[in-house]
Amino acid sequence: MVNSLWSRFGLELTLMVFIVFFGLVMCRAHLTYQRGNKKRIDEEFRQTMAQHCIQNVQIKQEHTVLGARRRGGKRSFDVHRILYSPPDRWFVYVHVEDENPVLLPISEQRAMASVTSSGAE
């Protein structure tokens, strides 16, 4: 009776340790994937700014989804930024995974409308 209790307890403990360990491994893999995406996003942003000879830029609004790998595929990362380059240039920057980044000039009014409509400043 006592041996069966201990063997059952040992089995349950082993199963719980495996589940916790598996969860930690999956969480670490997810974070590593997102860090890689963040690094790629930042590097391609710098390259795009250099290609357009923009040296000084302020990010006025940013919306970034770092993406994730899933059982049925993956959710792509995407980045949307409103940029200000002094003294009077405004841009929208869009980058979706597996596509080239897009940098488009916009008017100050359009940029301000976007920034104030989302509540960010």
Score class of each variant (00 low, 15 high):
Glu43Asp: 03
Cys53Asp: 15
Gly73Met: 01
Lys38Ile: 08
Val65Lys: 12
Arg75Asn: 14
Arg71Leu: 14
Ile59Thr: 14
Arg69Asp: 08
Phe45Val: 00
Arg69Asn: 13
Arg71Lys: 14
Ala50Met: 04
Gln51Lys: 14
Ala50Ile: 02
Arg71Ala: 14
Gly73Ile: 03
Asp42Leu: 04
Lys74Arg: 13
Thr48Asp: 00
Cys53Glu: 15
Arg69Tyr: 05
Ala68Glu: 11
Ile41Met: 02
Lys74His: 12
Asn56His: 12
Arg70Trp: 06
Lys60Glu: 11
Glu62Gln: 13
Lys60Arg: 15
His63Ile: 08
Leu66Gln: 04
Asn56Cys: 10
Arg75Lys: 14
Arg75Phe: 09
Gly67Ile: 02
Lys38Gly: 08
Arg71Tyr: 08
Lys39Ser: 13
Gly72Leu: 13
Lys39Ile: 10
Gly73His: 02
His63Cys: 08
Asn56Pro: 03
Lys38Asn: 09
Glu43Cys: 01
Phe45His: 02
Cys53Gln: 15
Arg69Thr: 11
Phe45Ser: 02
Gln61Met: 12
Arg71Cys: 10
Thr64Ser: 10
Gln61Thr: 03
Gly67Ser: 02
Gly73Phe: 01
His63Gln: 12
His63Leu: 11
Gln61His: 11
Glu43His: 02
Val65Thr: 09
Glu62Thr: 11
Asn56Ile: 13
Met49Thr: 05
Ser76Gln: 09
Lys39Pro: 04
Ile41His: 00
Lys38Trp: 02
Val57Gly: 01
Gln58Lys: 11
Cys53Lys: 15
Gln61Asp: 06
Gln55Val: 06
Gln51Arg: 14
Glu44Ser: 06
Arg71Asp: 11
Lys74Trp: 07
Gly67Lys: 02
Gly67Gln: 01
Arg75Thr: 15
Ile54Arg: 03
Thr64Tyr: 04
Ser76Arg: 11
Glu44Lys: 08
Arg70Glu: 12
Gly73Trp: 00
Thr64Leu: 12
Gln55Trp: 04
Cys53Trp: 05
Ile59Phe: 04
Gly67Met: 01
Leu66Gly: 05
Arg71His: 09
Thr64Gln: 06
Arg46Leu: 05
Gln47Phe: 03
Gln47Tyr: 03
Arg46Ser: 08
Lys60Asn: 12
Ala50Val: 04
Arg71Pro: 08
Asp42Asn: 10
Met49Trp: 00
Arg75Trp: 05
Gln47Arg: 13
Lys38Asp: 06
